[in-house]
Design a protein around this nucleic acid. Structure first.
Lengths: 217, 217
DNA sequence: CCGCAAATGGGCCGGTCGTCCTATGTTCAC
DNA sequence: GTGAACATAGGACGACCGGCCCATTTGCGG
């Protein structure tokens, strides 16, 4: 993964993936005003993967919350198939656990939407330019004084199960979808109730929404 | 659509209220590039109310989902105290009940974030310029084919019960709190499920949150 | 190496929930 | 004034949920 020469690269090609046209336009303008080329825009994760494949951008600016396929998942897929493409992940929610997930998925940088357009542009340039992979610490720092060091109080599996419940699945359906027994789901739910101080799935889901670990879809 | 006189107005003063700096900047740039003056930015509803009071803008571009105080509430307060200020409401979610709530609160226009920056600018100019108050129909049209014009699809009692469930009460507790029998609560819940196309209280509450008839507390 | 947390799973039981009937009184619009 | 919608309420039943035991495996940190 070394590309020493070819510094002559005329422009950095950027793909913008965000489900909000407003944001896409804003990002496009900001990037283009700073000498970068926006080669495409995607409105969901799947489109982002497709366009990354066909357009071969240098950088993808990827929103986390998108329909059809989330940004994290799209990041993982793009990163696996096209490891040369660097991905800058954008998020609405100050969720520290997302940083970890994003970095795991192969993101090179992580920004939340409370940062400035300029910061986004700078980050993209830095990431395109050099090896400036943002460490989780830097990312966490950028997110400002966030909650000390939690993210989700739940484990990955618990997050997954709670989200599935929020998405409308019953205990049995979650079990089927995750290829585990219903009993295991109930066990996880019990842990979730304890950790979120909820007494049933309804309150647990609402707690999850409140603290930003559950997406309303 | 005629705007003959008062063309002398030097600039239209706009206040941008959105919790995402990215969006605020994007809107500021788009507005300023089109000859409008952005006199301030607010990151939450309370700040929006405060700044509207002190800066006296002509227009407030107000996001719905903001911390501390929501955009709808802020719209209502600003509209009551300063009826001359016209408010353009922006939202992420295509929820038609929000249109009604926004219009009730005194909004002059309603846009979702999937519209273009240009559309936002045009709307602001139109609203500032003339009497171009967007009717619910126009707003509805913008949001796509939506249901006629209601607020909540539920009755008052049903709203009340769903909110109580969201607040953490069980069927029996709701019954006790409302001085009715548990059976009646179950009956209302059954109606709620049918109307919201939910199969249990969890989904019903989430639907309620989605369409803005349930407050997360 | 040992412990601990996470993920998996089983059984049991009481209580709640969701659904199916039916029924009565009130209110409001047509 | 007659029906439609709303709010009230009961019974019965099966399914699901939440709490309480418990066990095994895996992986990570001290």
């Amino acid at each position: 993964m070394t590309e020493p020469a070819l510094v002559h690269a005329p422009t950095t090609r950027v793909l913008v993936a965000d489900d909000h046209q407003l944001l896409r336009q804003a990002l496009r303008r900001a990037l283009e005003d700073n000498g970068l080329t926006v080669v495409g825009e995607a409105a969901d994760g799947e489109e982002a993967v497709r366009l990354a494949e066909s357009l071969r951008p240098d950088i993808v600016v990827m929103d986390v919350t998108m329909p059809v396929m989330g940004g994290i998942e799209a990041t993982a897929i793009v990163h696996e198939h096209l490891p040369n493409i660097r991905i800058v992940v954008l998020t609405m929610h100050d969720e520290h656990s997302l940083v970890v997930q994003a970095v795991d998925a192969g993101a090179s940088a992580f920004l939340n939407k409370d940062c400035s357009l300029q910061q986004v542009v700078e980050t993209v340039i830095q990431v395109a330019d050099g090896e400036v992979l943002l460490s989780p610490e830097i990312a966490a720092n950028m997110l400002g004084a966030m909650t000390p060091a939690n993210g989700s109080p739940l484990t990955k599996r618990e997050d997954e199960i709670l989200q599935a419940i929020a998405d409308g699945s019953s205990t049995t359906e979650v079990a089927r979808d995750l290829f585990i027994s219903a009993k295991t789901v109930k066990n996880h739910l019990a842990s979730i109730y304890e950790k979120l101080d909820a007494r049933d799935r309804t309150q647990a889901v609402l707690s999850g929404v409140r603290i930003g670990i559950v997406q309303i879809r």
